[in-house]
Design a binder for these strands. Sequence first.
DNA 1: CTGAACATGTAAAAGGTTACATGATTTT
DNA 2: AAAATCATGTAACCTTTTACATGTTCAG
Lengths: 188, 188
Amino acid sequence: MKMTPTGWTILGFLALHPRNGYQLRQAAQRSVGHFWGISYGQLYPQLKVLEDGGFIAADEAADGGRQTSWRLTGEGAEALAGWLDTPAQPVQLRDESLVKLLFSDHVGVEVMRRLIAERREKAQERRDRAEATIPGAHWPSEEGKSPETPLAAWLVRAHTLALADAELAWCAEAAVMITRHLDGQDEL
Amino acid sequence: MKMTPTGWTILGFLALHPRNGYQLRQAAQRSVGHFWGISYGQLYPQLKVLEDGGFIAADEAADGGRQTSWRLTGEGAEALAGWLDTPAQPVQLRDESLVKLLFSDHVGVEVMRRLIAERREKAQERRDRAEATIPGAHWPSEEGKSPETPLAAWLVRAHTLALADAELAWCAEAAVMITRHLDGQDEL
DNA sequence: CTGAACATGTAAAAGGTTACATGATTTT
DNA sequence: AAAATCATGTAACCTTTTACATGTTCAG
C-alpha cells in the first residue's frame, strides 16, 4: 500500500508531538476538520504504511500495549519537510449549497432564504469554534517547552476567522439583495 | 446505475437552457468550476441515467445527429425542484495548502511566504474571473427572452468576490504578521 | 451497572479524477 | 496541412466516506 494525503497529514500532526490513532483523529477533526478531513478508514492502515517506511515509530511505554503512541522519526521529519516543499494540490471545494442557490431562481425566494440562513449558521459555528481556539494549546503545557507563539497555527486561525466573517457579511448582503429584488419587481 | 450529484448538476444546467454534453462541461467549468467540479467521467453515463429516468430528452434536430442537445422535461423540472428543497450536503473543502501552512512552523518562513504567495495568486485569478463574468449572459440573447436580472447568479458571483477579497486581505495581513513575528524574535 | 468516551481496526461503496480513445470540424 | 477545438464516450484508479465490529476504561 502507498501513502495517501491522509498519511502526510498524520506525519504533520505527529511532528507537533506523539499521539495514538484516536488522538490523531480528534486533533485532525478539531483543528483542520473544516478544510481537511482526514480519512478515518485510512488512518490505521496509513499508520502501518508510515511505520513500514520508517517515518514513524511506536512508543508502547505508556500503556500495557493497548494503545500505541506514535512519534516522528528523523526520516519522517525529512519526508515531511520534503512534502511541505512540494507544490500544494489545488484547493478542492464541493459546495452543494452554492450550486443549489445558483439554480434556485425559478423555485421561489423561500428556497434562497433558507439556503442562505443555513450558510449563515454554519459560518457562525465555524467562526465561534475558531475564535475559541487558542493556537498552540495542543496539550497540557509541559515545563521546559518553549512558549513560543505558533505562528502557523495563528495564521490558519486568522484565515478561518476572516473567511467566516466574509461569509457572514455576504449572507447579510444577500438577504438585503433578495428583498430589494422583490421590491424592484413590485414596482414594475 | 443511479443518479450522482453530477446528475443533479446537469439537471440544473439544462434547466437554464438546452445544451449538449460538451457545452455542459464548459458551462460547469466556467460558472461553478471553482466550487463544484462536475465529474467528466460521469457526464455521459449520467446523461443516459437522466434520459432513462425521463428527466431529460434529446433534441437531435440541430445537427445530423453527431451532437445531441439535451433539454429538461417536466418531470425533470419537478425532480430538480425536489432536489433544491432537500437539505444541501455539508460543504467539503480539501485545502492542502492550508494544511501545509499549519505544519510549516519548523521548516522556515520561506515556505510560509511561498504558500501564501501562491494562495494570493489563485485568489486573484478567481476574483478576476468572477469580476469579468456577467451573470445571466449564458448565451446570445434571444428576442422575447425576459431580460430579468438573474438574482441567483448575481448572488453567487458576489459570494465568489467576497470570499476572494477576504482571502486576499488575509494574505496581506499574513505577510505582515510573518514580518512582525521575525522582528519580535530579533528583539529577544 | 450502565452509558459515554477511549481505542483499534476492516470492508465495502461511492463517486470524482484522470487518462485514454476516437473522430469530425474549424481555424491558421 | 497542421493544430486547435468540438464532441462523445470508456476504463481504471484513487481516496474518502460510511458502516461495521470489537473490546476497554472511566464517570455517574
